[in-house]
Design a protein around this nucleic acid. Sequence first.
DNA 1: CAGTAGACTTGGTCCC
DNA 2: ACTGACCAAGTCTACT
Length: 282
Amino acid sequence: MPEGPEVECTRLSLRRFEGKKIVKIELTKLSQKYKKYEGKQKIFDVFIGKTITEIERKGKFLIWNFDFSKVILNHLGMSGHWIISEGADVPTHIIHPKIKILFKNESKIAIFEDARNFGQFRIYDTYQDVINYLPIKKLGSDGLKVPFPQEAFAEKLKLKKNANKEIGRILLDQTLIAGIGNIYKSESLALAKINPLRLVKKLKPEEIERLGSSISIVLHKAVDSMGSSIQSFRTSTGEEGSAQKWHKVYAKAGFDCDSCGNEIIRIVQDKRSTFYCEKCQV
DNA sequence: CAGTAGACTTGGTCCC
DNA sequence: ACTGACCAAGTCTACT
């Protein structure tokens, strides 16, 4: 569940554990097959008995704060997601559990399942160390910020290094606006009716403004869509959210555009798919 | 400094 | 049916 809105939904559901004391953060048997987790159990044992004070989000990162200085920085990667499950054991239908968290006075556990194993856990001595971590430090304004940071967005687009790039490439740059992923990149451009191949320097101020507003609308709508299904956390596999129901272009290559009937096409930018309608997006 | 290829990894589809 | 190629919500590191 990896774009900004999905991470935000994850944060909202994990907030039930704020104020809860950690019994154990357990690296699963399966996790030990991978270098990134192998032999790291000790490092997580320092959280035993500590209480979660706040789980926050910066872009697509989750930051776990406790009642002592250490902090966990967690990224879901491509396939990582948190499952809240009743009972102390990982249900058998969860095939890629990497981390399990048990809490005091809490009948539910939190399970980090990550099929592709791109998820990240980094532990820092202090909050300041997290802030100094370059990928965090360099994050642009959050795309879910209200009101949308139009000025900061426009300023970054004016930077020399961005001027000659295609807008469809640059939207994934987390230092520009944090939280946009590959789906909402295409969807934002579709809503703004801007062709992903347009060069940043050729965009008119009103188009940049429209794109900013579109990003904001799309990301918030995504939170709302996912939010509805993430509430019903009983099934871990059925919690898809409903955002895909209103996608205009993402993964719709070969289908007709809802607005004009023209065929949606797929192109590749920076090795990532971009979907758009050539007629509607100019 | 910027830009980019490669690394990490499993699973689904036969498409884009 | 089976197989191999390709693709997928992302970021980090090392190299030019």
